[in-house]
Write a protein that binds this DNA or RNA. Structure first.
Lengths: 229, 229
DNA sequence: CGACTCCTTGACAGCGTTCAACAGTAGTGG
DNA sequence: CCACTACTGTTGAACGCTGTCAAGGAGTCG
């Protein structure tokens, strides 16, 4: 069976089961994408679901004049491209060199009507996670300032990359800006401001390696603030 | 069985089946809420789901300093309050006097594991609709201008209220602003600008009755703030 | 070494917010 | 019926956060 891949280099397919979804006769294949290559496009048929082994992926929507809103970043372990509809509602691109496992979408949905209920519930849980993330993102985009947005972004990545000391961001300033509804200059300025407050510092010379020195102060910046209740 | 209602006046409960969800022994009860009363709060247990018979509802999140982001408006026929989790992630309030039908949440989920698959799929479809709306809202909040936002809002309401000539908005300027990530003054100015372009006009003296005169021109405003290219 | 990408920083402008005044409407009670 | 209050919406003026435009540094790669 051949799987079409929009671009990027492909490899052969060792059928290994990932840990997340119940492993009910779902066959997974491995594929690789170069940095910047498209994995699937908005409005394309959603025939496959993806789990990241290595790398990072952005999913986004575009306006006709080029304005872009990134809905989410996907990191190793994440599943993306899962849809209830027949088509994708985002474009997905590899941010850096990325390895994914791909499975046929229908194998997860189990025939749509008489399928395995536990699998159906797993799919629903994943969709719900996406919804929850999007809902929190609405509040961020609509009602938070530039500094709050950047601080919240750093905290989110800090929790998800979970590296001991230095977090290595796979994405550039432009991606961060399009995720937060800002320009890359504003993101850069906010990061510089946080650095001047000694809340973080840049490691190395790539500016993508960031060490967080004061997470609680950073959390204050992020939530001038979030409702406790 | 008693159902707790946060506030507002309640009535007795004729067990009638709504048309939307498959009518599998789900008992629905009718409740009424006064304008401004809370239907459920964020982080409260999500024991019930709601379908609107009359009125309008807003669902929102708050920051501790009072900033508010409305995630969605719910109109007659809409189902809201459905959650995969055990708790609500938004607060819901009646915008105007509102009548809803309420059903126990668990009756829709069918026992979580061995339930009716078609009901499970219906729930997933509803969650997916919410997700799709939120995803489009992300692009709106993150990447569109004030005029584009207001124009898009009018088009959305035009499609959902589907009244012949004049659309009667149930919500005020403040609600619109908090839905679009703007201030009420900016919303008011954008509406005035559209009125001066003869794209719409206000009917009556409430400023909430709006007649759309040129939907195609309005659609242009919704996707391109200034020039095309 | 030149071309390229990515990022930072500065100067400035503008869009949207903030602050304020005012008009229209509705509800209340004398 | 009118005064009083509260609420909603419009409009003006000034401010400021963020975007725009521009320059330059630093790393990468052919």
């Amino acid at each position: 069976m051949l799987v079409r891949v929009s671009s990027g280099k492909t490899t052969r397919s060792p059928p290994i089961q990932p840990n997340e979804l119940a492993a009910q006769n779902v066959v997974w294949s491995e594929f690789r994408y170069r940095a910047g290559s498209e994995i699937f496009g908005e409005a394309e048929p959603a025939d496959y679901v993806y789990q990241i082994r290595q790398g990072a992926v952005r999913t986004y929507k575009l306006l006709s004049d080029g304005r872009r809103q990134i809905g989410a970043f996907h990191l190793p372990g994440d599943i993306f491209g899962i849809e209830n509809d027949e088509v994708h509602r985002f474009t997905a691109e590899a941010i850096i060199a990325t390895t994914v496992w791909i499975a046929k979408r229908r194998s997860l949905f189990g025939g749509l009507g008489d399928g395995d209920v536990s699998a159906t519930n797993n799919v629903r849980d994943l969709i719900t996670k996406n919804l929850e993330h999007a809902e929190n993102h609405l509040l961020l985009l609509g009602r938070q300032t530039a500094l709050e947005k950047v601080a919240a972004f750093l905290l989110e990545m800090d929790g998800r990359l979970e590296q001991p000391e230095v977090m290595g961001l796979p994405m550039g300033r432009r991606d961060i800006a399009d995720y937060l509804g800002l320009t890359l200059e504003t993101v850069s300025r906010a990061l510089s401001a946080l650095r001047e407050e000694s809340i973080l510092s840049f490691i190395g010379q790539t500016q993508r390696e960031i060490a967080l020195h004061d997470r609680s102060k950073l959390a204050q910046r992020a939530t001038s603030g979030l409702h406790s209740r």
